[in-house]
Design a protein around this nucleic acid. Structure first.
Length: 200
DNA sequence: GAGATGATTAGCT
DNA sequence: GCTAATCATCTCC
């Protein structure tokens, strides 16, 4: 059921980002399984993408995870508050990653409510990258973990979206990246209530 | 060792 | 719509 390692080794991170829509993402943290299917992603394309941490082959203790072989998690802290969960793709030495911006929850919703301190389920429970990580219990201590592990994995359950259901557009929150901020590297499922930003 | 800053969110106006 | 919250990481001394 888990997606094979080969799935993550492709070098076209943009194509993989699109194909991730409808794939199921699960975590098992503290013995509780939580997850759902992915409805929003963004591609970060290696050394030539000004919006990516790895732009210009920048290799630091933080970004070295992106340079590893695909099929692992890249988790980091942003704005001092929010953890972000990414999927690393491509072969070793090619720093590509896909930011998971929104998930449509299917399993362990009560556990997510506890983690999010949200007594009533609202779409914002897993809308936005910081929210997804918190709801699924993802933190920096699982940075670089394998997606074949029993803590964090993806599944293909046969859910697929057509091109008519998928919208492509520029990424969110990367205005500092100049012209690269305009690249159509964001993909989301049209009309899904768990998608974070503009949704039409 | 110090200073600047961000792949954001929630809450208030 | 606007802004505070909050700290690991990176960049220069």
């Amino acid at each position: 059921m888990k997606l094979a390692t080969e799935y993550y080794l492709g070098t076209d991170v943009v194509a993989i980002s699109k194909s991730l829509l409808g794939k199921y993402l699960f975590t098992c943290i503290d013995g509780v399984i939580t997850g759902g299917y992915i409805v929003e992603t963004e591609a970060y394309n290696g050394v030539i993408d000004k919006a990516a941490h790895s732009y210009g082959n920048r290799l630091t203790p933080r970004t070295k995870t992106m340079f590893m072989q695909g099929g692992i998690a890249y988790v980091y802290l942003c704005y001092g508050i929010h953890e972000m969960f990414n999927i690393v793709t491509s072969i070793e030495g090619h720093p590509q990653a896909i930011l998971i911006r929104a998930v449509h929850p299917t399993d362990g919703i009560e556990a997510m409510q506890v983690r999010r301190n949200m007594p009533v389920v609202k779409p914002t429970i897993t809308a936005g990258p910081g929210s997804v990580a918190k709801a699924l219990g993802i933190s920096r201590n699982i940075n670089a973990i394998s997606l074949q592990s029993d803590t964090l994995w993806l599944e293909d359950r046969g859910l697929n979206f057509t091109d008519e259901q998928i919208t492509t557009g520029p990424r969110i929150g990367v205005d500092y990246a100049g012209e690269d901020a305009l690249l159509p590297y964001r993909f989301y499922v049209k009309g899904d209530i768990y998608v974070s930003k503009p949704n039409r």
